[in-house]
Design a protein around this nucleic acid. Structure first.
Lengths: 252, 252
DNA sequence: AAGTGGTCTAGACCACTGC
DNA sequence: CAGTGGTCTAGACCACTTT
Protein backbone atom coordinates (compact mmCIF):
# COMPACT_ATOMS: atom_id res chain seq x y z
CA UNK A 1 0.00 0.00 0.00
CA UNK A 2 1.21 3.50 -0.69
CA UNK A 3 2.57 5.69 2.04
CA UNK A 4 0.39 8.34 3.62
CA UNK A 5 1.01 11.76 2.10
CA UNK A 6 2.79 13.72 4.82
CA UNK A 7 1.04 16.88 3.55
CA UNK A 8 3.20 19.21 5.61
CA UNK A 9 2.21 22.74 4.71
CA UNK A 10 -0.11 23.00 1.68
CA UNK A 11 -3.77 22.34 2.20
CA UNK A 12 -3.43 23.52 5.77
CA UNK A 13 -7.15 23.18 6.31
CA UNK A 14 -8.14 19.72 7.42
CA UNK A 15 -4.51 18.99 8.22
CA UNK A 16 -4.48 16.08 10.63
CA UNK A 17 -1.54 14.71 12.57
CA UNK A 18 0.13 11.75 10.92
CA UNK A 19 -0.89 9.36 13.66
CA UNK A 20 -4.54 10.37 13.26
CA UNK A 21 -4.40 9.71 9.54
CA UNK A 22 -2.65 6.41 10.16
CA UNK A 23 -5.44 5.48 12.57
CA UNK A 24 -8.06 6.46 10.01
CA UNK A 25 -6.45 4.30 7.36
CA UNK A 26 -6.49 1.37 9.76
CA UNK A 27 -10.13 1.96 10.72
CA UNK A 28 -11.04 2.08 7.02
CA UNK A 29 -9.43 -1.30 6.58
CA UNK A 30 -11.36 -2.69 9.51
CA UNK A 31 -14.58 -1.39 7.98
CA UNK A 32 -13.70 -3.02 4.68
CA UNK A 33 -13.18 -6.29 6.50
CA UNK A 34 -9.51 -6.38 5.59
CA UNK A 35 -8.99 -8.33 8.82
CA UNK A 36 -11.64 -10.39 10.58
CA UNK A 37 -12.34 -10.02 14.28
CA UNK A 38 -9.82 -12.09 16.21
CA UNK A 39 -7.30 -12.00 13.39
CA UNK A 40 -3.72 -10.94 14.07
CA UNK A 41 -2.46 -7.78 12.39
CA UNK A 42 1.03 -7.32 10.99
CA UNK A 43 3.57 -6.09 13.52
CA UNK A 44 3.71 -2.41 14.22
CA UNK A 45 7.05 -2.29 12.47
CA UNK A 46 5.60 -3.84 9.30
CA UNK A 47 2.57 -1.55 9.36
CA UNK A 48 4.77 1.48 9.94
CA UNK A 49 6.88 0.59 6.91
CA UNK A 50 3.78 0.02 4.81
CA UNK A 51 2.18 3.34 5.72
CA UNK A 52 5.49 5.18 5.51
CA UNK A 53 5.56 6.40 9.10
CA UNK A 54 7.88 5.71 11.99
CA UNK A 55 7.25 2.90 14.40
CA UNK A 56 6.52 5.39 17.16
CA UNK A 57 3.82 7.08 15.12
CA UNK A 58 2.30 3.74 14.16
CA UNK A 59 2.27 2.75 17.80
CA UNK A 60 0.40 5.90 18.68
CA UNK A 61 -2.25 5.06 16.09
CA UNK A 62 -2.57 1.47 17.31
CA UNK A 63 -2.69 2.57 20.93
CA UNK A 64 -5.52 4.95 20.12
CA UNK A 65 -7.47 2.14 18.47
CA UNK A 66 -6.78 -0.04 21.49
CA UNK A 67 -8.29 2.47 23.89
CA UNK A 68 -11.22 2.79 21.48
CA UNK A 69 -11.77 -0.91 21.99
CA UNK A 70 -11.14 -1.81 18.34
CA UNK A 71 -7.87 -3.66 18.85
CA UNK A 72 -6.36 -5.81 21.55
CA UNK A 73 -2.60 -5.91 21.99
CA UNK A 74 -0.85 -8.70 23.83
CA UNK A 75 2.79 -8.40 24.71
CA UNK A 76 4.86 -11.06 23.02
CA UNK A 77 1.96 -12.24 20.86
CA UNK A 78 0.74 -9.50 18.60
CA UNK A 79 -2.06 -7.08 17.80
CA UNK A 80 -5.54 -8.49 17.17
CA UNK A 81 -8.88 -7.18 15.97
CA UNK A 82 -11.04 -7.01 19.08
CA UNK A 83 -13.74 -9.60 19.43
CA UNK A 84 -16.90 -9.08 21.36
CA UNK A 85 -15.56 -11.35 24.12
CA UNK A 86 -12.37 -9.40 24.68
CA UNK A 87 -11.98 -7.17 27.68
CA UNK A 88 -15.19 -8.51 29.12
CA UNK A 89 -16.70 -6.64 26.21
CA UNK A 90 -19.71 -8.76 26.98
CA UNK A 91 -20.18 -6.33 29.82
CA UNK A 92 -18.88 -3.24 28.08
CA UNK A 93 -22.38 -2.42 26.96
CA UNK A 94 -24.22 -4.10 29.78
CA UNK A 95 -24.89 -1.98 32.84
CA UNK A 96 -27.60 -3.86 34.70
CA UNK A 97 -26.48 -5.29 38.02
CA UNK A 98 -28.23 -7.17 40.80
CA UNK A 99 -28.56 -4.99 43.88
CA UNK A 100 -26.37 -7.07 46.13
CA UNK A 101 -23.16 -6.87 44.12
CA UNK A 102 -20.49 -4.32 44.93
CA UNK A 103 -20.33 -0.83 43.52
CA UNK A 104 -18.19 -1.17 40.43
CA UNK A 105 -16.18 -4.34 40.07
CA UNK A 106 -18.61 -7.23 40.20
CA UNK A 107 -19.56 -8.98 37.01
CA UNK A 108 -23.15 -10.13 37.15
CA UNK A 109 -24.12 -13.35 35.45
CA UNK A 110 -25.25 -12.71 31.92
CA UNK A 111 -29.00 -13.17 31.44
CA UNK A 112 -30.54 -15.90 29.28
CA UNK A 113 -33.14 -15.07 26.66
CA UNK A 114 -36.54 -16.58 25.86
CA UNK A 115 -38.03 -15.44 22.56
CA UNK A 116 -41.65 -14.41 22.34
CA UNK A 117 -41.64 -13.55 18.65
CA UNK A 118 -39.34 -13.19 15.67
CA UNK A 119 -40.86 -11.58 12.60
CA UNK A 120 -39.85 -9.67 9.52
CA UNK A 121 -41.92 -6.63 8.67
CA UNK A 122 -41.84 -3.37 6.74
CA UNK A 123 -40.00 -0.66 8.63
CA UNK A 124 -42.22 1.79 10.46
CA UNK A 125 -41.69 5.49 9.94
CA UNK A 126 -39.72 5.71 13.16
CA UNK A 127 -37.55 2.78 12.20
CA UNK A 128 -36.88 4.25 8.76
CA UNK A 129 -35.69 7.41 10.42
CA UNK A 130 -33.53 5.65 13.00
CA UNK A 131 -31.81 3.43 10.43
CA UNK A 132 -31.96 5.82 7.44
CA UNK A 133 -34.00 3.30 5.48
CA UNK A 134 -36.07 3.74 2.32
CA UNK A 135 -39.79 3.18 2.41
CA UNK A 136 -40.40 -0.47 1.64
CA UNK A 137 -37.24 -1.64 3.41
CA UNK A 138 -37.71 -4.49 5.83
CA UNK A 139 -36.68 -4.95 9.44
CA UNK A 140 -36.45 -7.93 11.77
CA UNK A 141 -38.16 -7.57 15.12
CA UNK A 142 -37.30 -9.80 18.05
CA UNK A 143 -39.25 -9.75 21.27
CA UNK A 144 -37.74 -11.54 24.20
CA UNK A 145 -37.65 -11.95 27.95
CA UNK A 146 -34.28 -12.08 29.62
CA UNK A 147 -33.78 -13.82 32.94
CA UNK A 148 -31.01 -14.38 35.40
CA UNK A 149 -30.80 -16.87 38.29
CA UNK A 150 -33.50 -15.04 40.18
CA UNK A 151 -36.06 -15.06 37.38
CA UNK A 152 -37.15 -12.71 34.59
CA UNK A 153 -35.58 -9.28 34.76
CA UNK A 154 -36.48 -7.51 31.54
CA UNK A 155 -38.65 -7.45 28.46
CA UNK A 156 -36.94 -6.34 25.28
CA UNK A 157 -37.74 -5.56 21.68
CA UNK A 158 -34.78 -5.67 19.32
CA UNK A 159 -34.94 -4.34 15.75
CA UNK A 160 -32.45 -5.02 12.95
CA UNK A 161 -32.53 -3.67 9.37
CA UNK A 162 -32.96 -6.74 7.17
CA UNK A 163 -30.53 -5.56 4.52
CA UNK A 164 -27.61 -5.48 6.95
CA UNK A 165 -28.36 -9.01 8.10
CA UNK A 166 -29.06 -11.27 5.11
CA UNK A 167 -29.80 -14.97 5.72
CA UNK A 168 -31.66 -14.36 8.95
CA UNK A 169 -34.81 -16.48 9.07
CA UNK A 170 -37.78 -16.54 11.38
CA UNK A 171 -36.13 -19.58 12.94
CA UNK A 172 -32.97 -17.69 13.85
CA UNK A 173 -32.22 -17.59 17.53
CA UNK A 174 -29.94 -14.73 18.34
CA UNK A 175 -27.10 -15.93 20.55
CA UNK A 176 -26.60 -14.47 23.97
CA UNK A 177 -23.75 -12.28 22.82
CA UNK A 178 -25.31 -10.59 19.81
CA UNK A 179 -22.44 -8.21 19.17
CA UNK A 180 -20.05 -11.08 18.68
CA UNK A 181 -22.65 -12.64 16.35
CA UNK A 182 -22.84 -9.46 14.27
CA UNK A 183 -19.09 -9.27 13.92
CA UNK A 184 -18.43 -12.94 13.24
CA UNK A 185 -21.18 -13.50 10.68
CA UNK A 186 -21.69 -10.07 9.17
CA UNK A 187 -18.42 -8.25 9.81
CA UNK A 188 -20.36 -5.56 11.63
CA UNK A 189 -18.29 -4.15 14.49
CA UNK A 190 -20.30 -2.20 17.03
CA UNK A 191 -18.15 0.76 17.98
CA UNK A 192 -20.45 2.54 20.41
CA UNK A 193 -23.90 2.61 21.83
CA UNK A 194 -26.25 5.49 22.66
CA UNK A 195 -28.71 4.92 25.46
CA UNK A 196 -31.62 6.98 26.74
CA UNK A 197 -33.08 6.02 30.09
CA UNK A 198 -36.39 6.92 31.65
CA UNK A 199 -38.81 5.64 34.24
CA UNK A 200 -42.14 4.35 32.97
CA UNK A 201 -45.16 2.51 34.29
CA UNK A 202 -45.21 -1.15 33.28
CA UNK A 203 -47.69 -2.06 30.55
CA UNK A 204 -50.01 -4.79 31.89
CA UNK A 205 -48.57 -7.38 29.55
CA UNK A 206 -44.99 -6.71 30.62
CA UNK A 207 -45.86 -6.67 34.30
CA UNK A 208 -47.36 -10.15 33.86
CA UNK A 209 -44.35 -11.43 31.94
CA UNK A 210 -42.01 -10.22 34.66
CA UNK A 211 -44.27 -11.44 37.48
CA UNK A 212 -44.55 -7.95 38.89
CA UNK A 213 -47.59 -6.10 40.27
CA UNK A 214 -49.56 -4.09 37.71
CA UNK A 215 -48.35 -0.48 37.26
CA UNK A 216 -44.92 -1.21 38.66
CA UNK A 217 -42.32 1.39 37.73
CA UNK A 218 -39.81 0.05 35.19
CA UNK A 219 -36.57 1.37 33.79
CA UNK A 220 -36.88 1.95 30.06
CA UNK A 221 -33.66 1.80 28.06
CA UNK A 222 -33.75 2.96 24.46
CA UNK A 223 -30.50 1.88 22.84
CA UNK A 224 -29.04 2.41 19.39
CA UNK A 225 -25.92 0.46 18.51
CA UNK A 226 -23.64 2.22 16.04
CA UNK A 227 -21.12 0.47 13.82
CA UNK A 228 -17.61 1.59 12.89
CA UNK A 229 -18.94 3.41 9.82
CA UNK A 230 -21.50 5.32 11.91
CA UNK A 231 -24.52 3.37 10.69
CA UNK A 232 -27.14 2.58 13.31
CA UNK A 233 -27.31 -1.21 13.08
CA UNK A 234 -29.52 -2.16 16.02
CA UNK A 235 -32.29 -0.54 17.99
CA UNK A 236 -33.59 -1.96 21.17
CA UNK A 237 -36.06 -0.91 23.76
CA UNK A 238 -35.88 -2.65 27.10
CA UNK A 239 -38.17 -2.49 30.08
CA UNK A 240 -36.30 -3.62 33.18
CA UNK A 241 -37.43 -4.30 36.68
CA UNK A 242 -35.41 -2.14 39.02
CA UNK A 243 -36.60 -3.34 42.39
CA UNK A 244 -33.93 -6.04 42.54
CA UNK A 245 -31.62 -4.64 39.86
CA UNK A 246 -30.11 -1.28 39.05
CA UNK A 247 -28.32 0.39 36.19
CA UNK A 248 -24.81 1.35 37.19
CA UNK A 249 -22.70 4.02 35.59
CA UNK A 250 -19.26 5.28 36.50
CA UNK A 251 -18.46 8.72 35.14
CA UNK A 252 -14.85 9.90 34.97
CA UNK B 1 12.54 17.14 44.75
CA UNK B 2 14.43 13.91 44.40
CA UNK B 3 14.33 11.85 41.27
CA UNK B 4 12.09 8.82 41.07
CA UNK B 5 13.99 5.63 41.78
CA UNK B 6 14.20 3.84 38.44
CA UNK B 7 14.04 0.49 40.30
CA UNK B 8 14.95 -1.56 37.28
CA UNK B 9 15.26 -5.16 38.45
CA UNK B 10 15.16 -5.58 42.22
CA UNK B 11 11.81 -5.52 43.94
CA UNK B 12 10.20 -6.82 40.79
CA UNK B 13 6.86 -7.07 42.51
CA UNK B 14 4.92 -3.87 42.30
CA UNK B 15 7.25 -2.66 39.57
CA UNK B 16 5.42 0.07 37.71
CA UNK B 17 6.48 1.78 34.50
CA UNK B 18 8.29 5.03 35.06
CA UNK B 19 5.53 7.12 33.49
CA UNK B 20 2.98 5.55 35.86
CA UNK B 21 5.11 6.42 38.87
CA UNK B 22 5.64 9.91 37.51
CA UNK B 23 1.87 10.25 37.17
CA UNK B 24 1.37 9.00 40.72
CA UNK B 25 3.84 11.53 42.08
CA UNK B 26 1.97 14.27 40.28
CA UNK B 27 -1.42 13.08 41.52
CA UNK B 28 -0.02 12.99 45.07
CA UNK B 29 0.99 16.61 44.69
CA UNK B 30 -2.46 17.51 43.45
CA UNK B 31 -4.00 15.79 46.47
CA UNK B 32 -1.67 17.70 48.77
CA UNK B 33 -2.81 20.92 47.15
CA UNK B 34 0.66 21.65 45.83
CA UNK B 35 -1.06 23.49 42.98
CA UNK B 36 -4.53 25.01 43.14
CA UNK B 37 -7.15 24.35 40.47
CA UNK B 38 -6.53 26.69 37.56
CA UNK B 39 -2.88 27.16 38.46
CA UNK B 40 -0.21 26.66 35.83
CA UNK B 41 2.26 23.82 36.31
CA UNK B 42 5.97 23.99 35.46
CA UNK B 43 6.79 23.07 31.88
CA UNK B 44 7.07 19.41 31.04
CA UNK B 45 10.79 19.90 30.58
CA UNK B 46 11.16 21.36 34.06
CA UNK B 47 9.04 18.62 35.63
CA UNK B 48 10.97 15.95 33.75
CA UNK B 49 14.25 17.31 35.10
CA UNK B 50 12.84 17.51 38.61
CA UNK B 51 11.58 13.92 38.61
CA UNK B 52 14.64 12.66 36.80
CA UNK B 53 12.88 11.27 33.75
CA UNK B 54 13.00 12.18 30.09
CA UNK B 55 10.66 14.73 28.59
CA UNK B 56 8.89 12.01 26.63
CA UNK B 57 8.15 10.02 29.77
CA UNK B 58 6.96 13.12 31.58
CA UNK B 59 4.71 13.92 28.64
CA UNK B 60 3.18 10.49 28.82
CA UNK B 61 2.39 11.01 32.50
CA UNK B 62 0.89 14.44 31.88
CA UNK B 63 -1.11 13.17 28.89
CA UNK B 64 -2.57 10.41 31.04
CA UNK B 65 -3.65 12.94 33.64
CA UNK B 66 -5.14 15.06 30.89
CA UNK B 67 -7.33 12.23 29.65
CA UNK B 68 -8.27 11.57 33.27
CA UNK B 69 -9.60 15.09 33.35
CA UNK B 70 -7.17 16.26 36.03
CA UNK B 71 -5.10 18.57 33.86
CA UNK B 72 -5.75 20.82 30.89
CA UNK B 73 -2.97 21.47 28.42
CA UNK B 74 -3.03 24.42 26.05
CA UNK B 75 -0.52 24.67 23.27
CA UNK B 76 1.69 27.69 23.60
CA UNK B 77 0.37 28.48 27.09
CA UNK B 78 1.08 25.73 29.50
CA UNK B 79 -0.36 22.94 31.61
CA UNK B 80 -3.03 23.79 34.18
CA UNK B 81 -4.84 22.02 36.97
CA UNK B 82 -8.33 21.36 35.63
CA UNK B 83 -11.12 23.46 37.02
CA UNK B 84 -14.68 22.31 37.20
CA UNK B 85 -15.58 24.63 34.30
CA UNK B 86 -13.01 23.20 31.93
CA UNK B 87 -14.05 20.89 29.14
CA UNK B 88 -17.68 21.58 29.84
CA UNK B 89 -16.94 19.64 32.99
CA UNK B 90 -20.14 21.20 34.18
CA UNK B 91 -21.75 18.59 31.97
CA UNK B 92 -19.21 15.85 32.48
CA UNK B 93 -21.24 14.50 35.37
CA UNK B 94 -24.61 15.72 34.19
CA UNK B 95 -26.55 13.36 31.95
CA UNK B 96 -30.10 14.67 32.06
CA UNK B 97 -31.34 16.09 28.79
CA UNK B 98 -34.65 17.51 27.60
CA UNK B 99 -36.31 15.14 25.16
CA UNK B 100 -36.14 17.44 22.18
CA UNK B 101 -32.39 17.86 22.01
CA UNK B 102 -30.28 15.74 19.71
CA UNK B 103 -28.74 12.40 20.65
CA UNK B 104 -25.32 13.25 21.95
CA UNK B 105 -24.03 16.73 21.23
CA UNK B 106 -26.55 19.18 22.63
CA UNK B 107 -25.76 20.95 25.86
CA UNK B 108 -28.93 21.44 27.89
CA UNK B 109 -29.29 24.55 29.98
CA UNK B 110 -28.07 23.93 33.49
CA UNK B 111 -30.88 23.77 36.05
CA UNK B 112 -31.33 26.32 38.84
CA UNK B 113 -31.79 25.22 42.42
CA UNK B 114 -34.30 26.17 45.10
CA UNK B 115 -33.45 24.99 48.59
CA UNK B 116 -36.07 23.37 50.78
CA UNK B 117 -33.82 22.72 53.75
CA UNK B 118 -30.21 22.91 54.88
CA UNK B 119 -29.41 21.21 58.14
CA UNK B 120 -26.53 19.65 60.01
CA UNK B 121 -27.22 16.35 61.72
CA UNK B 122 -25.55 13.24 63.07
CA UNK B 123 -24.68 10.80 60.34
CA UNK B 124 -27.11 7.93 59.96
CA UNK B 125 -25.78 4.39 59.89
CA UNK B 126 -26.00 4.34 56.10
CA UNK B 127 -24.17 7.64 55.86
CA UNK B 128 -21.44 6.46 58.19
CA UNK B 129 -20.92 3.46 55.98
CA UNK B 130 -20.93 5.43 52.74
CA UNK B 131 -18.44 8.02 53.96
CA UNK B 132 -16.49 5.78 56.38
CA UNK B 133 -17.40 8.03 59.29
CA UNK B 134 -17.20 7.39 63.04
CA UNK B 135 -20.35 7.32 65.09
CA UNK B 136 -20.98 10.87 66.28
CA UNK B 137 -19.65 12.46 63.10
CA UNK B 138 -21.85 15.08 61.54
CA UNK B 139 -23.15 15.54 58.02
CA UNK B 140 -24.79 18.38 56.14
CA UNK B 141 -28.01 17.59 54.33
CA UNK B 142 -29.37 19.78 51.58
CA UNK B 143 -32.76 19.23 50.04
CA UNK B 144 -33.53 21.11 46.88
CA UNK B 145 -35.65 21.35 43.77
CA UNK B 146 -33.90 21.93 40.49
CA UNK B 147 -35.67 23.56 37.58
CA UNK B 148 -34.96 24.46 34.00
CA UNK B 149 -36.84 26.80 31.65
CA UNK B 150 -39.81 24.44 31.56
CA UNK B 151 -40.26 24.18 35.31
CA UNK B 152 -39.15 21.81 38.10
CA UNK B 153 -37.43 18.69 36.87
CA UNK B 154 -36.04 16.98 39.93
CA UNK B 155 -35.99 16.71 43.69
CA UNK B 156 -32.64 16.06 45.27
CA UNK B 157 -31.09 15.34 48.63
CA UNK B 158 -27.39 16.05 48.89
CA UNK B 159 -25.26 14.91 51.83
CA UNK B 160 -21.77 16.12 52.72
CA UNK B 161 -19.58 14.96 55.63
CA UNK B 162 -19.17 18.01 57.86
CA UNK B 163 -15.52 17.37 58.58
CA UNK B 164 -14.54 17.67 54.93
CA UNK B 165 -16.37 20.97 54.60
CA UNK B 166 -15.60 23.22 57.56
CA UNK B 167 -17.14 26.73 57.69
CA UNK B 168 -20.38 25.65 56.07
CA UNK B 169 -23.33 27.20 57.89
CA UNK B 170 -27.04 26.67 57.68
CA UNK B 171 -27.10 29.86 55.62
CA UNK B 172 -24.77 28.47 52.99
CA UNK B 173 -26.27 28.32 49.53
CA UNK B 174 -24.41 25.83 47.41
CA UNK B 175 -23.59 27.37 44.05
CA UNK B 176 -24.90 25.84 40.89
CA UNK B 177 -21.59 24.22 40.08
CA UNK B 178 -20.85 22.45 43.34
CA UNK B 179 -17.79 20.60 42.10
CA UNK B 180 -16.06 23.85 41.30
CA UNK B 181 -17.07 25.06 44.77
CA UNK B 182 -15.53 22.00 46.42
CA UNK B 183 -12.29 22.45 44.55
CA UNK B 184 -11.97 26.22 44.93
CA UNK B 185 -12.81 26.44 48.63
CA UNK B 186 -11.79 23.07 49.97
CA UNK B 187 -9.22 21.78 47.49
CA UNK B 188 -11.38 18.70 46.95
CA UNK B 189 -11.10 17.52 43.37
CA UNK B 190 -13.85 15.14 42.32
CA UNK B 191 -12.19 12.52 40.14
CA UNK B 192 -15.13 10.28 39.39
CA UNK B 193 -18.71 9.56 40.19
CA UNK B 194 -20.60 6.30 40.68
CA UNK B 195 -24.28 6.32 39.82
CA UNK B 196 -27.01 3.75 40.33
CA UNK B 197 -30.27 4.27 38.48
CA UNK B 198 -33.66 2.77 39.06
CA UNK B 199 -37.30 3.49 38.38
CA UNK B 200 -39.45 4.30 41.39
CA UNK B 201 -42.94 5.55 42.13
CA UNK B 202 -43.00 9.20 43.16
CA UNK B 203 -43.60 9.82 46.88
CA UNK B 204 -46.66 12.06 47.23
CA UNK B 205 -44.60 14.98 48.48
CA UNK B 206 -42.22 14.84 45.53
CA UNK B 207 -45.02 14.49 42.99
CA UNK B 208 -46.51 17.69 44.40
CA UNK B 209 -43.23 19.53 44.32
CA UNK B 210 -42.68 18.58 40.69
CA UNK B 211 -46.33 19.29 39.72
CA UNK B 212 -46.78 15.70 38.57
CA UNK B 213 -49.72 13.32 39.08
CA UNK B 214 -49.50 11.15 42.18
CA UNK B 215 -47.72 7.81 41.68
CA UNK B 216 -45.86 9.04 38.61
CA UNK B 217 -42.80 6.93 37.75
CA UNK B 218 -39.55 8.79 38.47
CA UNK B 219 -35.95 8.09 37.68
CA UNK B 220 -33.95 7.66 40.88
CA UNK B 221 -30.25 8.44 40.69
CA UNK B 222 -28.06 7.48 43.62
CA UNK B 223 -24.72 9.14 43.16
CA UNK B 224 -21.48 9.05 45.11
CA UNK B 225 -18.78 11.52 44.17
CA UNK B 226 -15.27 10.29 44.80
CA UNK B 227 -12.25 12.54 45.27
CA UNK B 228 -8.72 12.06 43.98
CA UNK B 229 -7.73 10.21 47.16
CA UNK B 230 -10.70 7.79 46.79
CA UNK B 231 -12.72 9.26 49.61
CA UNK B 232 -16.46 9.50 49.01
CA UNK B 233 -17.09 13.21 49.50
CA UNK B 234 -20.69 13.65 48.40
CA UNK B 235 -23.78 11.48 48.29
CA UNK B 236 -26.89 12.51 46.50
CA UNK B 237 -30.18 10.94 45.75
CA UNK B 238 -32.22 12.51 42.97
CA UNK B 239 -35.75 11.82 41.83
CA UNK B 240 -36.19 13.08 38.28
CA UNK B 241 -39.22 13.39 36.09
CA UNK B 242 -38.57 11.47 32.91
CA UNK B 243 -41.65 12.29 30.87
CA UNK B 244 -40.03 15.38 29.39
CA UNK B 245 -36.41 14.51 30.18
CA UNK B 246 -34.19 11.49 29.83
CA UNK B 247 -30.84 10.29 31.04
CA UNK B 248 -28.43 9.85 28.16
CA UNK B 249 -25.39 7.65 28.13
CA UNK B 250 -22.93 6.93 25.37
CA UNK B 251 -20.94 3.74 25.85
CA UNK B 252 -17.77 3.18 23.86
C1' DA C 1 16.44 -17.89 19.65
C1' DA C 2 13.33 -15.10 17.20
C1' DG C 3 9.56 -12.14 17.13
C1' DT C 4 6.26 -9.41 19.40
C1' DG C 5 4.61 -5.37 22.06
C1' DG C 6 6.11 -2.06 26.16
C1' DT C 7 9.20 1.41 27.92
C1' DC C 8 12.45 5.03 27.78
C1' DT C 9 15.45 8.28 25.81
C1' DA C 10 17.30 12.25 23.01
C1' DG C 11 16.64 15.36 19.74
C1' DA C 12 14.54 17.83 15.77
C1' DC C 13 11.01 20.49 14.13
C1' DC C 14 6.28 22.68 14.09
C1' DA C 15 2.36 25.62 15.89
C1' DC C 16 0.56 28.51 19.08
C1' DT C 17 0.73 32.22 22.75
C1' DG C 18 2.14 36.31 24.89
C1' DC C 19 5.45 39.86 25.49
C1' DC D 1 11.09 37.04 20.15
C1' DA D 2 11.20 33.32 23.79
C1' DG D 3 8.60 29.79 25.87
C1' DT D 4 5.13 26.46 25.70
C1' DG D 5 2.93 22.13 24.20
C1' DG D 6 2.33 18.89 19.86
C1' DT D 7 4.35 15.85 16.46
C1' DC D 8 7.63 12.79 14.55
C1' DT D 9 11.68 10.16 14.31
C1' DA D 10 15.41 6.68 15.38
C1' DG D 11 17.20 3.67 18.28
C1' DA D 12 18.15 1.09 22.62
C1' DC D 13 16.62 -2.01 25.82
C1' DC D 14 13.14 -4.87 28.43
C1' DA D 15 9.43 -8.45 29.08
C1' DC D 16 6.67 -11.79 27.29
C1' DT D 17 5.28 -15.64 24.04
C1' DT D 18 6.12 -19.13 20.91
C1' DT D 19 9.03 -22.35 18.38
Amino acid sequence: MSAIDPAPNPARLEAQPLYVRARNVMVERLIEGHWRPGEMLPSEFALAAELGVSQGTMRKALDAMTTEGLLVRRQGRGTFVAEAEDNSILFRFYRLTPDGSSQSGAKPSFPESRYLSRIQDSASEQEREIFSLQSGDKVWRFERIRSNDEGPILWEQLVLPAKYFPDLTSETLLPNNVYQFYSTYYGIIVARVNEQLRAVTAPDKVADLLSLPQKSPLLEIDRRAIALDDRVVEWRRSLCRSDTMHYRNELK
